[in-house]
Design a protein around this nucleic acid. Structure first.
Lengths: 209, 209
DNA sequence: CCTCCGTTAACCGTATCGGTTAATACCATT
DNA sequence: AATGGTATTAACCGATACGGTTAACGGAGG
């Protein structure tokens, strides 16, 4: 990959990244044409090939960038430090939303790339994704104090359920293709508040009044 | 569309449908080649063109079939008659699972087709989807008796949350591409049970013991 | 006027597309 | 064995789209 790419104005860099995320998110690797990416980025195909010597290189660069900025944003948001469950979910989602504001298609791209089957890229994707996802769920659960929650609740199930609900909410927007981040934030806030009144002992007591 | 298609053995018909669902679910309409569908269905491209005169016809046929069998399965499962909320969700998901067992990619196809932008098909998709989704949520909520649920709960939010969670759970499987329907059913059952203990007044009382 | 450099139009060889055609393979009837 | 019909396909067609290259354009600095 041509280092001159980093010399580009930030804005141009982002529009190229976003064009790549967008096109690769919609179709298979093989069926995502470089010409389409160049068009979406507002540059010529030749120039795109000037910055990235071939399609594979661009694809893997996008993948690495995607992983890098996600981890960056996550740590910067402090999502990993938070001890309070809802607090850390809040920070995490905050980070995700900030990301999606800058790179609307980064989520869809990440999922597609992760499950991409094309032998030209799949191996390297799988190899490099070590840190990228999860692991945190289990550790997060251990630290929870059951006393904070309503009696008898299955905390693991609760966590899984919350995760699915936020993913489901996210996907509703992603699929629709309308990236209204503000609306997403509102929805997610509502979810968090709802969970607090339902799952937290304290929340329950207040709601019953 | 050639009526001889219905003369085919059920098994062959399904394999063609599934091939279509699969390929069209993975890529845009324009970038989903007929040859690939034929290959996946185990027939020649020429024969596929014998049953469906052109790509557009096959696509719209798949869409109609998708809508038809979904409604069929839903009504057959009795999901629409049920008055109890969890009961109707149970029946509904049961129907969905049965569908996905027969047509693993029908879900992904439906979503993609619904949001397809290609002018060659998008208009007709939008036109014909009248009954296909929603409407039921609002009516279902009106019939709920707040006395059955824990006091102070926002029923609309609860419903939305449950919907998102099941969608999120579903998508996790769909995205992964491994259609382990039995595992999905188990997960969904667990969700339902969890919700009952958390949201239902009766469930809460039992759990607190 | 020259040179450098970001940028692109135009090009190249090849692969793939939607769709057709003419010929096969198959099978029941005579 | 010859016949006729039907299911199925290999081979083909013109058009287009692909990844990647090249030669040239245009503007800024000297």
């Amino acid at each position: 990959m041509n280092p001159k790419f980093y010399g580009l104005p930030q804005e141009k860099q982002q529009s190229i990244l976003n064009a790549g995320f967008h096109v690769f998110a919609q179709n298979t690797y093989k069926k995502s044409p470089m010409s389409e990416i160049a068009l979406a980025a507002g540059i010529s195909k030749a120039l795109l090939f000037h910055y990235f010597h071939n399609k594979k290189e661009l694809y893997l660069f996008l993948w690495d960038t995607c992983a890098r900025i996600t981890v960056e944003e996550m740590t910067r948001s402090g999502a990993y430090e938070q001890t309070d469950l809802f607090g850390s979910m809040d920070h995490g989602m905050q980070a995700k939303l900030r990301l999606m504001r800058q790179y609307p298609d980064i989520g869809s791209f990440a999922v597609r790339a992760f499950y991409e089957k094309d032998p030209e890229v799949s191996a390297e994707i799988q190899k490099s994704m070590g840190q990228y996802l999860q692991v945190h769920a289990a550790k997060k659960l251990e630290k929870l104090d059951p006393e904070d929650f309503i009696p008898g609740i299955d905390l693991q199930m609760m966590y899984k359920e919350m995760y699915w609900a936020s993913e489901g909410c996210l996907w509703e927007y992603i699929q629709r293709g309308i990236m209204d981040i503000d609306a997403m934030e509102k929805d997610f806030r509502a979810l968090l508040d709802f969970w607090k009144t339902v799952y937290l002992r304290k929340g329950r007591e207040e709601a019953e009044k």
